[in-house]
């Protein structure tokens, strides 16, 4: 989160809506610990990362859907072991859960 602050400040100062995705849970071999965070602005610009690069693309799509009001803030899972898991998986075989929400607070 610390390394996202400058980008988030700049975007918010320009009035650009921002979504925040945070790792809230990992199972098995996960690349990043809970708290790893990524910010996405409505123009699709990204700061930070939440995995080793495996799921960032899908996170951007979800974040943009939330910013456009097409999806609600929620927990999404990535990994092969979960029914709700997105099609994208983690190459390390683990599962990560992310909470994605608009940064409107």
């Amino acid at each position: 989160m610390r390394d996202l602050l400058d980008d988030i400040d700049r975007w918010r100062a320009a009035g650009t809506p921002v979504a925040l995705a945070r790792v809230v849970d990992i199972e098995g071999s996960g690349p990043r610990l809970p708290g790893a965070a990524m910010a996405v602005n409505i123009d699709g610009e990204v700061a930070g990362s939440v995995s080793g690069g495996c799921v960032e693309g899908a996170v951007v799509s979800e974040a943009l859907a939330i910013l456009h009001g097409e999806a609600q803030p929620r927990v999404i899972s990535f990994g092969y072991s979960d029914d709700e898991a997105f099609a994208v998986g983690l190459t390390c075989g683990g599962t990560i859960r992310l909470f994605i929400e608009p940064l409107d607070w």
Binding site: D9, V24, W105
Partner: peptide
């Protein structure tokens, strides 16, 4: 409450801080 500004200031100043967020159930977010 505009919490992000409060959180950011504490992270920048390296002050101990915690943020609890409802991620499922009543009042998500």
């Amino acid at each position: 409450v505009p919490l992000y500004a409060e959180l950011r200031a504490r992270i920048r100043n390296e002050e101990p801080v915690g943020l609890a967020t409802v991620i499922d159930g009543l009042h998500v977010g």
